[in-house]
Write a protein that binds this DNA or RNA. Structure first.
Length: 305
DNA sequence: ATCCAGGAACTGT
DNA sequence: ACAGTTCATGGA
């Protein structure tokens, strides 16, 4: 992490290939999003370190990420944790130059890489949040997924209100481990998704399932296998979590409907491509399938193509 | 109305 | 192993 602490604010120095505005477009894709707010080019994000709530205002000036603390700066230890969170959130450890080398040789990715240069995967550093969000979104449209997330967060999450705006934290697994299926059925979760989510919360309470344990596995196959042993997690969810939480750039949610639609639009296909066809397009994406997928998702937000 | 949605488990063969 | 069915509801 490359940063400088100034006590009342922080500066984070991103790698060369970074476009804050492009990341904002992704963050701003749903007006039902409750885990951050965007105002005048800055992102407001509430995070929790130990028992402290830290409100961050994240802006971008002169190619530097500037982080301010509207409710006052926390101590240096917590500031560093906040900086680390933001570094991970924006996926700033990745060498996108390597991705662009791959993309520039590829028919499908070449234009996207140019058009969205500097876009990074907006990650979900918290494992529980990543898993729950993925499970919530299975087999429903994205708008409804956001509706479910909003209900879930506003029912079970902590919040902080500052100058009339309320900022929310994703619910903790400690809290969700104690609720029951009916609590989630009331929010229109299916019984199965409710079971999956509560079971995962319990597994995390027990310490059987942690981000650290997953990252200790010897390779990505082992991680994927560990995830897929959990009820409610299939190939798509495992890949999604590896991409958005564990920073595996080679993870590839190949069954993703958004990916299919993006390819159909981009290549002007009559129908959605089959898995086999997608694997042909992806033959040269080795190592960067997650970024390829993400850039294709991004293309779905340009209606005018 | 009708089809499909950022899938996965379950059931039957 | 593999295909078909069910979950459950909202969006377009």
């Amino acid at each position: 992490m490359n940063w400088i602490d100034h006590e009342s604010y922080m500066e984070i120095y991103p790698p060369k290939e970074f476009n804050f505005k492009e990341c904002l477009i992704f963050l701003d894709r749903s007006n039902l999003e409750v885990l951050h707010q965007i105002k005048e080019g800055s992102v407001y994000k509430l995070i929790k370190v130990k028992e402290s709530l830290i409100l961050c205002k994240i802006g971008f000036i002169n190619n530097v990420i500037k982080v301010e603390f509207p409710i006052g700066p926390p101590s240096i230890h917590f500031r560093k944790k906040a900086a680390e969170y933001i570094w991970e959130w924006y996926d700033l450890d990745q060498d996108l130059g390597a991705f662009y080398q791959v993309a520039n040789q590829d028919k499908v990715l070449k234009n996207l890489a140019h058009k969205y240069y500097g876009l990074r995967i907006m990650c979900i550093p918290d494992l529980f949040e990543a898993l729950v969000w993925a499970i919530m979104g299975q087999q429903i449209n994205l708008t409804f997924a956001y509706t479910l997330k909003k209900r879930f967060v506003e029912q079970f999450g902590e919040s902080l209100t500052f100058e009339g705006d309320t900022f929310w934290l994703f619910p903790s697994f400690e809290k969700i481990a104690l609720i029951n299926v009916d609590d989630l059925r009331k929010l229109q979760f299916t019984s199965r998704k409710a079971e999956y989510i509560i079971d995962i919360a319990k597994a995390m309470i027990n310490g059987e399932l942690t981000k650290e344990l997953l990252l200790q596995k010897k390779d990505d196959q082992q991680i994927q296998w560990s995830l897929m042993r959990i009820r409610g997690i299939g190939p798509w969810t495992a890949d999604y979590v590896m991409m958005k939480c564990l920073h595996y750039t080679s993870s590839f949610p190949v069954a993703d409907v958004g990916l299919h639609n993006a390819l159909r639009n981009l290549l002007d296909l009559e129908r959605k491509p089959t898995i086999e066809e997608i694997e042909k397009y992806a033959a040269d994406w080795e190592g960067w399938q997650a970024y390829a997928t993400y850039y294709l998702w991004r293309s779905l937000y340009d209606k005018n193509i």
